[in-house]
Design a protein around this nucleic acid. Sequence first.
DNA 1: AGTTTCAGTGAACGTGTGTTCACTGACGAG
DNA 2: CTCGTCAGTGAACACACGTTCACTGAAACT
Lengths: 209, 209
Amino acid sequence: MAGASEVTETRVERKERTRRAILDAALELTDGTSLVAISLRQVAKEVGVVPTAFYRHFDSVESLGLALVDESFESLRGLLREVWRRSPEFRDYIDGSLPVLADHVRAHSAHYAFIVRERTAGPPRVRDAIRHEIELITRELATDVARVPGTESYSTEHLNLLADLIVSFVVTTAERLIEEPGAETRIVADTRTQLRMLMVGALNWESRR
Amino acid sequence: MAGASEVTETRVERKERTRRAILDAALELTDGTSLVAISLRQVAKEVGVVPTAFYRHFDSVESLGLALVDESFESLRGLLREVWRRSPEFRDYIDGSLPVLADHVRAHSAHYAFIVRERTAGPPRVRDAIRHEIELITRELATDVARVPGTESYSTEHLNLLADLIVSFVVTTAERLIEEPGAETRIVADTRTQLRMLMVGALNWESRR
DNA sequence: AGTTTCAGTGAACGTGTGTTCACTGACGAG
DNA sequence: CTCGTCAGTGAACACACGTTCACTGAAACT
């Protein structure tokens, strides 16, 4: 039966497909609200499945949330790899990375929106998971920045603080890109200026006139 | 009946007292979640009043939220006035203001936590209200910064961007103070260093060894 | 071919939800 | 002293919620 086998789905394929549908439905339903505000039954209805079937894949909305945290941060690590790949020099590092960030947020807006929202308002364990992931990324960034020429004068403590500063700034920028997707070019331009202020120093700043 | 009148409550006093109790109950119930996740009936039960009585004061949980936005930002404006009063010089401006921010967040943690959570995950109109208030404060800050010596070289556009940068940073710091109240002294110390980096410029930075 | 596994079903449960309505009774104005 | 106002009551509604249970039927294993 070679002809039929390419149409038919294997059992695990079918299961995975439903699982994906549940994850996607949750992302769609949380758009504009939070995980804590949606119900298992809403998700099931959106998927087109009976509420009980939900339990075959997740044992609560919270654990669904943890799965979404995982795949959202997988997205984000893709961004980081791409950014680091294209920017050998520190000065251009952040500057040239902004368009990459904007592209990435646009392409994976559901994931970024999810992180931004659940980071402060999600179920406690989801919040913790997100905070932990951000912490890991900050540590990674600190070691990356340490390898860049021009950072020799930084103590390791200050390297961590700089990395933390940059990550906060990226989070803020991602927030803005998500809540006002139409203003992407303005946000990127403004953020670039602000990053230069940060790099050069507000006290040494002079606006060109 | 002069003696009794000091014990008895007037009608408007009683009404105001219930209204306050509703606002406080909502702040308490949203602690750890969001407005979108609590119900009118939970609030009523917490206040010790029948669900229907809620409608005498607010016509939905969302409008309750808008009232909370109002009083939360009244708190915040108190902070701004205090900060500006004690810091005539720009260099100490932000630096000396951090303890004031920490005190204020500690004293009004319910309000700050509310803003932090609902800013990204609250009902749409509440989110808009918060964004609008933050915008107003950013504008105020820009005109304040313009009056400070040392900012003559800034164009008005760049003044706005600097103000915006500072406000984002304050929001991030407030977030941290709320989600880890025990680490206040560490957070303040780290943030102070990061603010100096921002002022002096990361590229000009040298760690003392 | 026969048997096991298991994603999805459908009914049922107790409980919580927002909103309606007619009501009570104390305060405050005339 | 009398009467209208109005914060708070309590019953009732139609519906959504999470979770349980015994079930079906097709794919997968033996």
